[in-house]
Nucleic acid binder design. Structure first.
Lengths: 209, 209, 209, 209
DNA sequence: CATGAATGAGTATTCATTCAT
DNA sequence: GATGAATGAATACTCATTCAT
């Protein structure tokens, strides 16, 4: 092993994809930033798309793990489980802020390529959340609600801070990349949870949610 | 039949910029979609960048007009004026959904090019909103607040539906491109206005804001 | 029109394809030999393959015309018609010796690409020759024979001089690119015709044919 | 199980060289087909060219042996010796059909590389055949003839079936890779020998030769 | 008003090869 | 005996642009 270019390439790629977008980033940019030869990228990832796929799957593999780690809690309580999952995800996203932001943005492009890569993970995620939501409803912990709608609202809450960082910054007086942000934003999410999902508090729905 | 390539090019450009991003769209793509010759684009707009600038200025010129049309109301009431401005902008964005979405996304990239083009318009917009906010505060219509924060929150509210369409869709059960969406979302914005800006209601800060 | 690069490119391509093979020829080689920019090739022919296709179709279009020009003679006599066709083809091949040689060689590679391009023309050619052969047989001008076999023998006779030029050179003491070669070789083909196809002379089949 | 990559590589190389040509075959293609690592090729043969050379020399070494095995017969009769040599070569070529075809085709390209590798063997071959021919002429077994011409005709006869397989297939109703082909084609060669080389039959020159 | 010809700079990828292991 | 890491040079191709018409 001479240089471990692979890791350097991935790091450089994530940074550049985030700031300049996938299409706006050239393989040479990445190689230069990683102090490697452009062909090393082909060597490890076949193509630019292969590199993208690698970044995605690496991210999502760990992302899904965040949810899975909370699953055992489902037996003791759906609400606790859901909260834990959201907490895990939020912390994960904050410590992988570049990829989180990049994915959120690229998702808003109509690129089938990206969607194809991610669809498997999204299905997994959907499945886990539906399990929690349906379990909670069956047990009377949650209000009867369309789980689909709840899911999309959840996803919205989780991605918003990364696509609209200034908005969040000004409302919570804290930056998404700061460690402290997660704690603050988590409170917001829990407020929303109590207001719309949980049935214990009758909860006047808050303005936006 | 005259060919009016210019208009066709602009329409094609906006559609493609929106779906594939600026960097991901080639001049040939645009020309092909507009049934025109690539050099026709250079003829009318000099550059790819010139075409982008044209789309932007054309959009922002009309965007700013939406605010300006509400300005006369300032004398009768800052709140009324602000509300009108927000209403105008929202309706405008909904009827120019592709550009609105494109700009919101491209803004989240660190491309100085885009920022440069837009800075003049953003300054104008900022100036008008500050006028309204400061006038309202002076007159006691609005709570004393940092106008900067308020501005960024406003912008956040206005762009969010275009970057997170699914989120909005599920919360309001309506699609951003439907005419009916504006009405619904406007109610949300007014709720927010009353909760955070206006002083009439002492306003328990709503969940999200 | 500034340079008429198209023609220059085609000429250069044919020469290089012939001497170095398709795979062995680079687009830059061609462009250099044609005193043109490599991208001019993409401009006119899309790809390297497009250039190859152009060369092929241009060649075969004219090749087929050689056969078609002899077709009217079919009414007066199948033998005369066939002879005229062979004569035309031979003269045509000799004045397009590079392409003839290149095609003969490239055909012996197992490249589906090449085969696909040529299949339409080969079908046409086959159809015309079968017409002649079957007509001749029906009328008793030709011996009863499998037209398929006859066809392939004909093709073999026509391509052999270009794939095995030294062989021919030594046997006929003449070079395939010399104008005089066609006349000499034509005599051989006619001998073969009389020996194997025509029924008038009972003709002892010659050694090789 | 030992991997014996070397042999696998050579086999793969021959197959690919034959179907796609030397320039059209990449070292990775070969390695992939041989289930080996590309660098193993460099390890054994230094270069792509080295691999080619190996294939060639291995082939020609055995090729020349075919001629040499017939040489002892020269004392008893030049004709018998020549016939035996041709028989040996033909059988050899048929059991190494891929290399035979590849060499025949690559020879028709103007690549000095290939020619350089082969020149030594061609000189040897030439020398042996000239020996036979001159001996035969001196002894009156053969007609007085230019040995150069005879040689090239011989080579032509020997390579033709591999460059024009369809031609041969249809004329002799047999495929070059079938064992039975050699026997049939050998008859043709002997007919030609008797017609043009041997002086016993005064020989009316056959149609083609 | 608009376009076809042509291009230079750049982009992704391929390829043969090297070197340390 | 064989291979994985890494690369430089080349290759085909794309792209925005220019210029003459």
């Amino acid at each position: 092993m001479r240089k471990n270019s692979k890791k350097a390439i991935v790091t450089a790629a994530i940074a550049l994809f985030n700031t300049k977008g996938y299409a706006g980033t050239s393989i040479r940019d990445i190689a230069a930033k990683a102090n490697a030869n452009p062909s090393t990228i082909s060597y490890y990832f076949d193509n630019k798309l292969g590199l993208l796929e690698y970044c995605f799957t690496d991210y999502f593999e760990r992302y899904i793990k965040q949810i899975e780690e909370s699953l055992p809690l489902l037996d003791s309580g759906a609400a606790a489980c859901l909260k834990k999952a959201l907490e895990n995800i939020l912390y994960f996203q904050c410590s992988n802020i570049q990829m989180s932001r990049f994915i959120a943005r690229e998702m808003s492009l109509d690129s089938q390529i990206v969607r194809e890569i991610m669809s498997t993970y999204f299905q997994k995620e959907k499945y886990y959340f539906q399990e929690m939501l349906e379990t909670g409803m069956k047990r009377g912990e949650f209000r009867k609600h369309s789980p689909d709608y709840a899911l999309i609202q959840l996803k919205g809450l989780l991605t918003m801070p990364f696509l609209n960082p200034h908005y969040i910054t000004e409302v919570l007086h804290v930056f998404p990349h700061e460690r402290y942000f997660a704690e603050k934003y988590l409170e917001q999410i829990e407020l929303w949870l109590e207001g719309t999902i949980l049935s214990t508090t009758v909860g006047i729905p808050s303005a936006v949610s």
